[in-house]
Amino acid sequence: MRPPSRSLVLAALALLLLAALGGWLSQRQEAPSVRAQNAIPVRVVSVARQDVPRYTSAIGSVLSLHSVEVRPQVEGVLTRVLVKEGQWVKQGDLLATLDDRAIRASLDQARAQLGQSQAQLQVAGVDLKRYRLLSSDDGVSKQTLDQQQALVNQLQATVKGNQAAIANAEVQLSYTQVRSPVTGRVGIRNVDPGNLVRTSDTRSLFSVTQIDPIAVEFALPQQMLPTLQSLLNAPTPALVQAYLDADGESRLLGEGHLALIDNQVSANTGTVRVKAEFDNKDGHLWPGQLVTVKLRTAVEQSALVVPPPVVQRGIDGHFVYRLDGDKVTSVPVKVLYQDSTLNIVAGVEPGDRLVLDGQSRLKPGAQVEVTPEAPAPAEMADRRSQP
């Protein structure tokens, strides 16, 4: 048998070298793809530095600063009602009138009696002057002079009594014109014109309630009393916001300021009542309405903020995953303040890229692949405020 030629042996060796080289290259190309498949996709957000207001929340009740039940102050027939239900009125506006004929007659009678008493006083005064002249020459007795002086004094008192009767009748007459004691909104009418009304009636004619400005009353824990006192004594009134919670969303009804802290703490609940005042020109706040109140207690200057999903809770406390290159590191943090939109944290630096989504698959040192970066907390707040 003829041995293989040298050229065939060399060709076989070349083929073996080419096959080995191809296998080595294919392994190098597959390695990155395998590593890429092992990377965990995450979203990250950068730590931002901004001023953050701190709030405390409570459930409050809207109250009118002035609400008056309009009742008759004299007895009489209700002749006219000059306002409609739900009408806005100003202080001093005429609301209704009562039959005033009997009171006018009493007023005329009191004026007539005053005229009579004044005429009698004038005659008695002239006689008193005459008696004084005669008494100097013993033309009249001292007893007669004293009696005339007493008569003048009696008539003077009668005149004052008549004047008081006139003033009383005028006051009674003014009560027949029912005027608004405050600026506000007329409620539902309880009595129609033509009915006899008395001061002892249990039902009022209607109510007038002040709507602008208006108040909101709420309760806070007694531990906040020092904070409330400092806010009340501050040169700038503390901001208070009122929200209406409906369909899972909160709608801002108005912004006001802290106005009053009650003079005692409730022993049963351990809370103190607080009142805030609001401008209510648009009438978004209504007496008796339940609202969510947010009181701004402080403003954190240059705070480090992150979205709430960034902060995780572990056995040893709170921590975050920080992106270092293409791997993550577990960093312990302290949560200084939190609400529904952001957390104030300590333990990281501004600009650090933290994992926002995908933490459940992570562990320290894990390799990650970053998907499009989430907006910063301030940007998210701006987007929520846009329609």
Rank of each mutant, 00 (worst) to 15 (best):
L17H: 06
S67Q: 06
G358T: 06
L342T: 03
L173R: 02
P53W: 01
E69K: 09
D192M: 15
Y337C: 09
N153L: 07
R111S: 06
D93F: 08
G351T: 04
V345Y: 10
A242H: 01
A96F: 04
L107I: 09
M224R: 04
L25W: 11
D127M: 10
R6H: 11
F218W: 01
T176M: 07
G283A: 06
A14K: 03
G161K: 00
R35C: 03
V9P: 00
A48P: 13
V74D: 02
T144A: 10
V197H: 01
T297G: 00
V45W: 04
G248N: 10
T56C: 05
Y321T: 00
P287L: 00
A219F: 13
R296D: 00
G184V: 03
Q289L: 13
P375K: 07
Q172D: 13
L133N: 14
R322E: 15
L151V: 12
V272R: 01
Q386D: 15
A12N: 05
L362M: 04
A267V: 11
L225W: 01
A105R: 15
A378C: 07
S57D: 09
T292W: 13
S26F: 02
V345M: 06
N263V: 08
N263L: 05
G351W: 01
T371I: 14
T79M: 14
Y243R: 01
T269R: 10
Q289S: 02
Q386C: 06
P377I: 00
L13W: 01
S330V: 15
S64E: 00
T176C: 12
P287R: 02
A31M: 11
Q386T: 12
H257C: 07
D382G: 12
S302V: 08
V197T: 02
V272G: 01
E277P: 02
R130N: 03
V208F: 03
Q289V: 05
A215E: 01
Q116A: 13
L290T: 15
Y131P: 07
L114Y: 12
S64I: 01
T227N: 05
S33W: 14
E75H: 10
G288R: 08
D357Q: 12
G254Q: 09
A112R: 15
L228I: 00
R104Q: 12
S57M: 07
T144C: 02
V178P: 15
K281L: 11
E85I: 11
M224H: 03
L18G: 09
S117E: 05
A267N: 11
Y55N: 08
